[in-house]
Design a protein around this nucleic acid. Structure first.
Length: 651
RNA sequence: GCGCCCAUAGCUCAGCUGGAUAGAGCAGCGGACUUCUAAUCCGCAGGUCGCAGGUUCGAAUCCUGCUGGGCGUGCCA
């Protein structure tokens, strides 16, 4: 049962027959801001007072006359300017708690009206190893998938793999010209990744080599303009702004040139790479040709693509397994290839798209630039594929909602995509771009290695697990009764803790904001971290072990009893699990659940500090506290599971 | 140029469709292990919520302008 939802329903019902806009008033029922104001509060009276031209406290009193909260609440109080404070009756909490003991769903009732959600997440490029940039989409998408499913919705997880783009052209070119046969036979994925990196590097080299003279000319120009006399005090606002922009552009260009010169230098001084530079064709064009050949059904490229794919997918599967992430489908871009010409024709026939400058475009009133669905050279783009994907998903699953868990830089693309879909007639589906921010390094810049590459996901996980292992070992060695974990257990714990730390760090931040990635912070194992929650769980399991009790057997109890205020606070927090899940789903923000779990664990630790469980003064109190412990443990384990994070018995 | 996003304590972040005295965690200072794991708990200190207006009984939250930052912007994904 969702208490907040219940209170809102009761309140709205009590308003029937009154001249009020009840839809806007539901939100005035809220959790209390401060424990002194009770458990929940209704803030409707102040707003209504104005409309009714009556003093707010009198309005509050009138509302209370109609409100029937039965056995749920103590008599409500009117406070301050007209707040209505609600306090749950402790006997009601006690009854609910005993009911929870037998409820495998921890009070979360399946939704009355299940919807179908397609969730598009992770979507890496199969041609290159996953890196830090893929964490957020994968982890957030997986959490939403789990939570929506738990709430009773029909969920379809679809990993929209990038298996058809230019990156594959690079691999094809690299394989044909630079492959090391022995390495490929030995470990195809590593060799393909090497080839991708190599070709990518060479293309960058060519581009930079070509552009450098032009950039330098441009920089000289900017420097010259900068050197011109400029009187700050005499300039108007616009001139000052232009001046600053000039400086910015100059600095950026300087940095670009510096970086380019460094990487050109690096390529030329790398004996293995430098030897390839002679007689190198225009690689970018060559790669595009390979890509085009693949798309046009060239048997050789097709055969190679088909032989590469299983290896690439197996490598991805390995990392997904380690992360504990799964999908129902993995329809990559290639899956839609055959549908594209037809789709574009359909768009033209519908009058949605038209020819412009040789390309086929969809124009929108609300955007300056169109969405191009077929290039001048006849090739299709990811926008085309994305439209075909909507087409397919609508026909196949008839979803009510499609979620795209993709970083915020693509927001304009999705705005156009959704507008185009509506033009195609898909108006009865909710298309949502679940955008998220960038993972930053501790310098506040996007998280990169020193050489400027994206940090590989695998090495990220390894490092987190390595650090977690050290902490686990140190802590175990320091236990009063001596170490109690075998090395095998320590390794298992380190894996769960390390990976959990990374996922939790990501999920505990609001998805739309950029966040700073810091091993020290997420493995500090203090504060709002996965470890703190896992530790609470382990402590609970330890209590049951100490008392030689089965932690999973229902605690027999007729009447729940409490003594310290913290016990009631902890109990109430347990009852609010459904609210936390509802909050997550309302805006697709998993950090609402991490916040809830942190608060739960925090209350548990306070309780643990103040209250003896096994040595409680009476058997009834002991059973009551054991019930609390068991429910906290179950809620933490379930909550973490819904975030894709595991727990351990001991740590 | 245009569009989107952001600015909250020294640092990293919350603040739920406007609500009562803006909250955590780190870092700092001071306490609590003969007692179910001190990976914990308690206390102290720390904020003109970027700036200026406006709407409102009430604004960190909504509107306008400004400042500072990030991202995107016709044939990459």
């Amino acid at each position: 049962m969702n208490i907040l939802q219940h209170l809102r329903r009761q309140f709205l019902q009590s308003l029937e027959g009154l001249d009020v806009d009840s839809s806007s008033l539901a939100g005035t029922v809220q959790p209390a801001q401060d424990p002194r104001f009770g458990d929940y509060q209704i803030n409707a009276a102040m707003g209504l007072a104005k409309r009714w031209k009556e003093p707010p406290r009198e309005v509050a009193a009138k509302l209370l006359e109609r409100l029937e909260l039965g056995e749920l609440c103590e008599p409500p109080e009117i406070a301050g300017p007209g707040f209505i404070n609600l306090r749950l009756r402790s006997d009601w909490i006690a009854r609910r708690l005993v009911e929870l003991a037998d409820d495998p769903r921890l009070g979360v009732a399946p939704v009355a009206d299940p919807a179908t959600y397609v969730i598009d997440y992770s979507s890496p490029n199969v041609a290159k190893p996953m890196h830090v940039g893929h964490i957020r989409s994968t982890v957030i998408g997986d959490a939403l998938y789990r939570i929506l499913g738990y709430l009773g919705h029909r969920t379809i997880g679809d990993n929209h793999l990038g298996d058809w783009g230019t990156q594959f052209g690079m691999i094809l070119y690299g394989y044909k010209h630079f492959r090391n046969e022995a390495s490929f036979a030995d470990d195809p994925v590593t060799e393909l990744a090497r080839l991708y990196q190599l070709v990518h590097r060479l293309i960058e080299y060519q581009k930079q080599k070509k552009s450098l003279p032009e950039w330098k000319r441009r920089l000289e120009e900017l420097e010259a303009r900068w050197a011109e006399p400029f009187d700050e005090s005499a300039a108007d606002k616009k001139q000052r702004k232009a001046r600053r922009r000039l400086q910015q552009e100059r600095d950026q260009l300087r940095a670009t040139i510096e970086r380019a010169e460094m990487s050109v230098q690096a390529v030329e001084s790398d004996p293995e790479v430098a030897s390839l530079l002679d007689n190198l064709p225009d690689l970018e064009a060559a790669v595009l040709r390979e890509t085009a050949l693949l798309h046009d059904g060239d048997p050789e490229n097709r055969r190679l693509w088909e032989s590469f794919m299983p290896h690439c997918k197996a490598a991805l599967a390995k990392i997904y397994e380690r992360l504990g992430v799964s999908f129902d489908y993995e329809y990559g871009e290639s899956f839609y290839h055959d549908a594209l010409p037809e789709l574009v024709q359909k768009l033209i026939d519908l009058g949605v798209a038209r020819e412009s400058e040789g390309a086929i475009c969809i124009f929108f009133d609300e955007f300056d630039t169109p969405m191009i669905v077929r290039k001048r050279d006849g090739a299709f783009l990811y926008a085309t594929t994305d439209l075909a994907t909507i087409d397919f998903r609508m026909k196949t699953w008839r979803p009510n909602v499609i979620l795209y868990v993709v970083d915020h830089r693509q927001s304009e693309h999705f705005a156009k995509l959704f507008a185009a879909a509506r033009k195609m007639g898909y108006t009865d589906v909710e298309l949502v771009h679940v955008a998220f921010g960038t993972v930053l390094g501790e310098d506040g810049r996007p998280f990169k290695t020193r050489s400027g590459d994206a940090v590989g996901l695998e090495s990220l996980l390894d490092e987190a697990v390595r650090r977690a292992y050290n902490v686990v070992a140190t802590n175990d060695d320091a236990k009063p009764g001596g170490a109690e974990l075998s090395d095998e257990e320590r390794r298992h714990i380190a894996e769960v803790v390390g990976i959990g730390a990374i996922k939790y760090a990501d999920l505990s931040h609001h998805r739309t904001s950029d966040y700073v990635f810091s091993y020290d912070q997420m493995l500090a194992l203090e504060g709002n971290t996965a470890t703190y929650l896992q530790y609470s769980y382990a402590r609970i399991r330890s209590i049951f072990a100490k008392g030689e009790l089965d932690p999973d057997a229902p605690v027999a109890l007729d009447q729940w009893q409490w003594e310290a205020p913290i016990e009631r606070e902890l109990a109430l927090q347990l009852l609010r699990f459904p609210e936390a899940l509802e909050d997550v789903v309302a805006d697709y923000t998993p950090h609402q659940l991490t916040g809830y779990l942190y608060e739960l664990a925090n209350r548990f630790h306070k309780f643990y500090q103040q209250c003896r469980v096994l040595q409680a003064e009476s058997s009834q109190l002991r059973a009551s506290r054991l019930l609390l412990c068991q429910l906290v443990g179950r809620t933490i384990a379930r909550g973490l599971e819904l975030l894709g994070i595991g727990v351990v018995e001991r740590m």
